[in-house]
Amino acid sequence: MRKNIILCGVGGQGTILASRLIATAAMAGNIPIKTAETIGMAQRGGSVFSHLRLGEEANSPLIAKGETDLIIAFEPGEAVRQLPFLKKGGTVVVSRRAVMPVSAMIGKSSYDPEQMIDYLREHTEHLIIVDADRAAQELGSSKTLNVVLLGAAVRSKELGLSEEDLKKAVKERVPERFLDLNMRSLAWSRDNGEE
């Protein structure tokens, strides 16, 4: 097996935990895994990414452009930023909700999230858009967007892991009192994914 996956978003959105859940599931299946991620100053509201490489063949923790099977984006603009890494015919799972940067709020830069979604529609063969606002409303929390997106990713069949594998990883990593919420989050996109 060989899978290259990129998780991307804005510092504080929970990309690192999502990356850890995939790694836990891969380890349980004895799949070698290497990752590289953004840690440090950029976590304070900056763009963050994790590269994950599953399988025997990977030496480098970083993925080359055009060689990513799956991008899981926590934010539309960040999906577009990472799009050059996607392979021909690759899959993008993206949250529709934008995180507006302070620079745009105070008029120092411009950002139109709808344009990003349009761009993704035009240039991605397999695009899954997740309505994060509706998910948060129905789940009663906006804190599990990462697990909602993982659920959508696993059902795209591009993650290289099964929903069962991920469930086990969530059970292992998530504290008991948040388990039910996370399980519902993992399942949420089953009936709510938008292609």
């Binding site: 577009v80 620079s103 830069s109 139109d112 344009q115 990003m116 761009y119």
Partner: peptide, 17 residues
């Protein structure tokens, strides 16, 4: 190799804050 992408719309500028 995937096809060359056209330039995207203005990406959000996110210096750490």
């Amino acid at each position: 190799m995937p096809d060359e992408l056209p330039a995207p719309p203005a990406l959000p500028v996110r210096p750490p804050v």
